[in-house]
Every structure is written in structure tokens, then in C-alpha cells.
Design a protein around this nucleic acid. Structure first.
Lengths: 143, 143
DNA sequence: CTTTGTGCAAACGATTTGCAGGATG
DNA sequence: CATCCTGCAAATCGTTTGCACAAAG
């Protein structure tokens, strides 16, 4: 627990981010949960008992953490942006029904038996987004 | 051209959608373009010369067409929803620089040489979203 | 102390909605 | 002619911003 807290403080410092209670709370909360919460859900979670962080601060902390590469945004739904403290490459499983999102380890994908991602998941399809540079941008950027 | 128009009318009717000039225009526009426009871009395109469809109508037409399975939404960016008249399964390439989106044929993906999607594209990474039903939802739905 | 973060409330952009009039099947 | 669609403007939702005060290094 204390160990965990020290780690967070250390990680933030290593990115030259000031360690404020709010920022700490946002990051700690995200690290502690396996779902992929929206900004709003994080605000809720942090202020459940005692008000600790304003909405604006949570949004700004999320941006800061994202820019530092400590968290990533996940866009699987329209309208909302979800966050994930797992920055290692990995894929996502999304339930069409409840919208629940589950991580799929990176290695599992290529050559994977999609019908057996894990017992209990019924896979109906998948979509791949490849990202990189297109020719036009590539040539306009200094080579 | 006329052939094309008839096809659109026919397709709309086959989904029991009323054929209104606005709805026709939205669908025709989406079928005619290869990019993945936002609702706003479609509004622009349709009203470029003569005002033909209000913003609200375009949004509602897009919803209707989506519900009918004639178009699909593509979420590759935060904040905006893009639309695609290509409802066949396929993947996307997104340029990190200009944001341009290009379709990748479905068959190409598994066992694909990502470095040679097509000459000119520099691939930096990819993400997969698998969708389906999770155990919880699966059991709550009548089996 | 200087810099950066916080909180509030107002501003914003994308999308939705309520409602009256109009077009479609 | 009953139903569904359109257009306008106001409303809503998620997110951002301006600014004065407070806290961190």
C-alpha cells in the first residue's frame, strides 16, 4: 500500500510532474481499477466520500498524465473518452450489450483463436485500426 | 447516374425508409465519397451551393441510416463521429499526422505484412477491438 | 519566491430534442 | 389522411478555458 503510493510518487516525479493530492488521486484511481473509466466516472469515484478534486482538475490531470505517457485514452464508444493506466500495447474486447471493456494481451492477437479468447466471451467480430504516416505527410515532413 | 439514383431509392425502400430528398442526399453523398466524413462535413457538402438539408436533419438521417444498417459509424478520433457507407467488414488506416483515414480490405489483415499494407504507408502500430458478448450478458439474455 | 496546479463558472463544440408545419406512402 | 420527416432554436453532454487564489519545488 505504502509501497504502491511511493511508486506513484516516484513515477510522477520521474516525469517531472508535480505531485499534488489531486493528480496522485487520479493516477492511483486509474491504476487501481481494471475497467476503463470515463473522466466523469473518475470524478465520481474521487469525490464519493469527501470532495477531493474538481471536475476541471480531473480533466486536466488526465491530460497531463496522458501527455506524460502514464495513461492512455481509449475510444471505443461515441461521445466519451475512456482512460486506461495500462500503457503497454494491448487490444480490447468490448461487450456489445453492457459496453464493458476487457483487455486482451497484445501477444494473444496474431494467430489467435478468436473463438477462445477466454472462456465465456462470445466473439462476434473485430476491427483493426492501423496507424502511422501516409505518403503525403511523410514527404512533407523533413526526411 | 440515374441507375445509381434508382439503386439508392430502392435500397432505402427495402429498409422501409421514406425516401425524402434530404435522406437521399445524405446517403448518396456518403456513397460517393471515399473519405470518412463527419456529420458536419456532410452538412457542408450538401449545402455548399443551395441549402438542402438542415443540420438536425442530417444528424437524424445519419442515425436512421445507421439503424437500418446502410452506413456505419467510425470512431477513430476523439470528439467526432465519422461515417462510412462501406458496411462490409474492413479495417482502417489512420494517418497520425493529417488524420486521413483509408480503408484496408478485410482479407488483408490476418497474416498481413503490416510493413507493406500498400507502398507509401508507414505503419507505426495497430490496435484491435474485438466485440461480442461477455459471459454476464450472455447468461442474462435468454439462451 | 517562481512556477505550476486548483477550483469555479462561463464558454465551447458536437449532438440531441421539442415542437409546429410539411411531405410521404 | 395518418404517419413520419424537416427545420428551427433551445437544450444537453462531454470537455475546455479564463482567471484569481493556493500550493509545490
Amino acid at each position: 500500500m505504502q509501497q504502491q503510493a511511493d511508486n506513484i510518487v516516484h513515477t510522477l516525479k520521474s516525469k517531472s510532474l508535480r505531485v499534488t493530492p489531486q493528480r496522485f488521486a487520479v493516477y492511483a484511481n486509474l491504476l487501481a481499477r481494471a475497467d476503463h473509466p470515463t473522466a466523469e466516472q473518475i470524478v465520481q469515484a474521487l469525490n464519493q466520500n469527501v470532495p477531493t478534486s474538481s471536475q476541471a482538475t480531473v480533466y486536466s490531470s488526465l491530460q497531463t498524465l496522458r501527455d506524460a505517457g502514464l495513461i492512455r485514452e481509449v475510444l471505443l464508444e461515441e461521445g466519451v473518452c475512456r482512460y486506461d493506466a495500462n500503457v503497454a500495447p494491448h487490444h480490447h474486447f468490448r461487450c456489445k450489450c453492457c459496453g464493458e471493456i476487457e483487455d486482451i494481451a497484445w501477444e494473444q492477437f496474431f494467430g489467435l483463436d478468436l473463438q477462445n479468447l477466454r472462456p465465456g466471451l462470445r466473439v462476434e467480430g473485430y476491427e483493426v485500426t492501423v496507424y502511422g504516416m501516409c505518403d503525403r505527410c511523410d514527404s512533407s515532413t523533413a526526411t
